[in-house]
Design a protein around this nucleic acid. Sequence first.
DNA 1: GGAATTTGACCGATC
DNA 2: GGATCGGTCAAATTC
Length: 571
Amino acid sequence: MAASSGSLDTSGNSHPQSSNNYFSFSTNSSNHYPFMTSSSFTDLLASNDEEPINNNTGNSKLADRIAERTGSGVPKFKSTPPPSLPLSPPPVSPSYYFAIPPGLSPTELLDSPVLLNPSNILPSPTTGTFPGQGLNWKSSSGNIQQNVKKEDRSFSDFSFQPPARPSTTSSAMFQSSNSTVQPGQQHTWGFQEPAKQDEFVSGKSNMVKMEYNSNSIKSFSPEIAAIQANPQSNNGFQSDHGNQPQQYQSVREQKRSDDGYNWRKYGQKQVKGSENPRSYYKCTFPNCPTKKKVERSLDGQITEIVYKGSHNHAKPQSTRRSSSTGSNPAMIPAPNSNSNEIQDQSYVTHGNGQMDSSVATPDNSSISIGDDDFDSQKSKSVGGEDLDEDEPDAKRWKRERENEGISAPGSRTVREPRVVVQTTSDIDILDDGYRWRKYGQKVVKGNPNPRAVITTYEGKHNHDVPAARGSGSRSLQDHSNNGNNNAAMATRPSTVNHASNNPVNNPIRNQRAPPTATSEGDMPFTLEMLQSPGSFGFSGFGNLMGSYMNQSSTDEVLSRAKRELEVESFW
DNA sequence: GGAATTTGACCGATC
DNA sequence: GGATCGGTCAAATTC
């Protein structure tokens, strides 16, 4: 099938054989899933040479446009071997990814309606808070002007904190600085070197001093935050402070979570289809049924977190964490504090200062970071000396990956961490006419847009669209059905937020195809969704929550797609 | 010595 | 009914 990553049919035609109809980076007809393969961003982008993204505009290739905009060319996660692994500076300055196109300020970007649709923002499954609230992201574009200043403040608050010294306490991560972002100012992205990381996600400065990461992490587990702030974080970026001795926490040191709860590891298993060991944790609170699964890459970085169940107790005081690891006061913000604007972005924080309310919701929510691409992909870090502690299997994995050319020695394949709150009952009828049970939602790490949504479609419907759906969706459906079923799948989603089309933000493009996906028809694919109707459609700032917008016509989709493509060129 | 982690074994679900 | 897999248990180990 023409399952293509992050695709949107902007041509109005459904060509099963032509995956590039859908904003796809997949241009190789023999490989419709480049992001699931060893292809690097560069490869993928380069592939546009053959089959440029079909935006019907004849625009320059994305890679070229990126290069034009940035002057730096397309980041080469794979093809450009890291100079010397973890301690070296990133091949491309993280700030590079924050290049704002001339004439467009961060504020303007944030003012994009796509950011502001609160209906699309789900509460944290563990905190019940709404990430967007913390950022004061407005739900109405009509107030943009009035709120510009406020937006600016919020933006700067969560994002562009100058790097503090590594020894700085984690509060730096969430400090609610009122400093104004200087457009041209260079900021590190939270690749802060952990002065010390004796907690899994300790509130160290590295944890979420992630100027860059804050965007993509703020709504999620601090584990993720820590991971992303980790110099070895999944983006393959490396610390700007790379001259410091490597002080990454050991596996054992990472056992504790700073999501505010205490967890006890009760098992670990190597799951099939993933090279990463999966650890099982239980909440240590008596009778609390909450569990979580954590997958780590071989270098110890979390690639996925799955929460199961909900806490039946308030978040414990941070006594243990305080004593054990130099707790991060900011991780448990004082209610209504200014810093909540940032802290709300983290699972461990909650603007209302209550955890109970939040923990009551998980069963009804489903939020994830990462997507099934990542679930199934095999990419892993293989280039780091982190592998010193690898077990034989890990070494084997490394060897296999190298043999497969997945990642050249010394290079790093990135993988997004994923947070999933498992759910037993979120069913919605979406605009594609089908009833969907939402089980996960992802944020692309490394994506400046914390709300970018990638919806992964897996398999294909074995039934018709349920009746009584809007004409718009029917339009899409009928249209999609003109092709084969597989192609139809690609067009069913009514929205596309191709945040992942952002070459900078598309680590998933490096992902390999899942081993279980043996046929095109069964291959999972992603559609990055445009967001709310009338949205700016800026992929880099798309609304994370709510993958589907209520558009009612294909034309509208196409129109947005075009706009989005235009915006995409910023990246 | 206690607490936490590790890890092999076991169990249930699914194919 | 057997194989496989994910999840859990619990003894051993580590800190």
